[in-house]
Simulated assay, not measured.
Amino acid sequence: MNFHLEGKRALVTGSTGGIGFATALGLAMEGAEVVINGRTPARVEAASQRIRDAVPGAQVRSVAADLSSADGCNALIQSVPDLDVLINNVGIFEPKTFEAIDDADWLRFFETNVMSGVRLSRHYLMGMRARDWGRIVFVSSESALQIPPEMIHYGMTKTAQLAIARGLAETTAGTGITVNSVLPGPTRSEGVATFVERLAQERGIDFAAMEREFFASARPSSLLQRFATVEEVANMIVYVCSTAASATNGAALRVDGGIVRAIA
Rank of each mutant, 00 (worst) to 15 (best):
H123I: 03
H123R: 06
Y124A: 00
L125I: 06
L125D: 00
L125V: 05
M126Y: 02
M128P: 06
M128N: 05
R129L: 08
R131F: 01
D132Y: 00
D132K: 01
D132A: 00
W133D: 00
W133I: 02
G134C: 02
G134I: 02
G134V: 02
R135Q: 04
R135I: 01
R135M: 02
V137F: 04
V137K: 08
V137R: 10
F138S: 13
F138C: 07
V139C: 05
S141F: 06
S143M: 10
S143T: 08
Q146P: 01
P148S: 05
P149E: 09
E150I: 07
E150M: 08
E150Y: 09
M151C: 11
M151H: 07
M151I: 06
M151N: 11
I152A: 12
I152Q: 14
I152V: 14
H153C: 04
H153M: 10
H153Q: 14
Y154M: 09
Y154E: 10
M156V: 13
T159W: 13
A160P: 07
A160T: 12
Q161R: 10
L162I: 15
A163G: 12
A163Y: 12
I164L: 15
A165L: 15
A165G: 15
A165M: 15
R166T: 11
R166G: 11
R166F: 14
G167R: 15
L168S: 09
